[in-house]
Design a protein around this nucleic acid. Structure first.
Lengths: 200, 200
DNA sequence: CTATTCACATACCGCTCGTATATAAAAGTC
DNA sequence: GACTTTTATATACGAGCGGTATGTGAATAG
């Protein structure tokens, strides 16, 4: 094994810290997670953390960016397998709801992220999930299949509805029985955007 | 002025602390707000706070309960003036969006509340806003004007969409020009729940 | 009038984040 | 290849935080 170059060694520590932070933030929440414990868990100290991410919020931003990217690519993979654009939008929303059942996603991306980093539209990661939904909505509008609405407004409402549905499902006593209700209600709600109900 | 009874004196300190907390939480956010500063601002010390609310989260819960109640009563007042139930639901959602433009509401009820107290459906305050929407949806379902969906699911999705729309509006560069877009998109989306589009 | 309760203040402790400093290894230079 | 510089990480320190344990004086009860 050749000696690691400086750049790739630093990349590894960044990955280790982000992985440890993901676990700690998901388990204890952002504000209750200790940076001493977190860095020790990664075999490092706070020195590495401050050098790489500036401060605690910088680390959160990096974690959120990573998870947001993962979520978006998964959503895109699902949507691309749909038969048409409209089915793709429905599938995209559905998979957002399902992904938000993961406690890690819920706590970090949906709760602590907005509370400590501000609105997702201003995140450094550019919020890949929201961008993806905007593109899908834009294509549907161009195809003349949707009522004329503002693209960004529609995307925000769709994401908001999906994510809130997921929070509800996750907090319920029997998530597995509540999930289909949430998905069905989401589909009904989204149908309001459809221009010609006969096409649905 | 007669000497204050013990009970009403305690009520006054509770009110003073809640008022000071509302201001502090809105300005600095829950986690950054200092309980020493906050209580001193109310002319008290942390002793009063721990005696009345148990801990910092207890104070947040009390603040959220108060604000949630205020929002629900305002929404009910607006909805009750609508011509029919359907218009009432639309008006209710619209006023939620508008209320969420208040920075105090946004920060405390929409961001810090869920992050530190968990899902709104489990708040001690019982979440009056959500309850109100559920009742409205329930009446529309009984009247046969809505597609058959789960009441709670529909209410959660509607609130989620409205609140997320508000977060988007508030974070935008020109809230005043974006607000009507959000409201219109909300109305279009909600129309998906309507059974007979001709009635809208 | 005495005894008790209790609402609030004070004192203290462990822990946390951020910074300032130290160190050792890689990278650059000739 | 030796010397200097850069820099990625570790260490040390201080200010401030929340929570608890304890003190205190006024309102209540008998």
């Amino acid at each position: 094994m050749p000696p690691k170059s400086r750049a790739e060694a630093m990349g590894e520590t960044r990955e280790k810290l982000i992985a440890a932070a993901r676990k700690a933030f998901a388990q204890k929440g952002f504000s209750a997670a200790s940076m001493d414990d977190l860095t020790a868990d990664a075999g490092l100290t706070r020195g590495a953390l401050y050098h790489n991410f500036g401060d605690k919020k910088g680390l959160l931003a990096a974690v959120v960016a990573q998870m947001d990217g993962e979520m978006a690519s998964r959503a895109q993979a699902v949507a691309s397998q749909a038969t048409d654009e409209w089915a793709g939008l429905l599938a995209e929303g559905t998979v957002y709801i399902e992904m938000a059942l993961d406690p890690e996603v819920r706590r970090i991306v949906l709760l602590d992220g907005p509370a400590f980093l501000g609105d997702p539209s201003q995140w450094p990661s550019q919020n890949a999930c929201l961008e993806l939904t905007k593109q899908t909505v834009g294509r549907l509008l161009e195809a003349g299949r949707m009522k004329p609405v503002d693209v960004e407004a529609a995307a925000r409402l769709l994401n908001g509805a999906a994510l809130n549905a997921a929070l509800w499902v996750a907090a319920s006593d029997e998530p597995r029985s509540v999930l289909p209700k949430a998905i069905e209600a989401f589909h009904v709600l989204v149908s309001g955007l459809l221009l010609d109900p006969g096409q649905a």
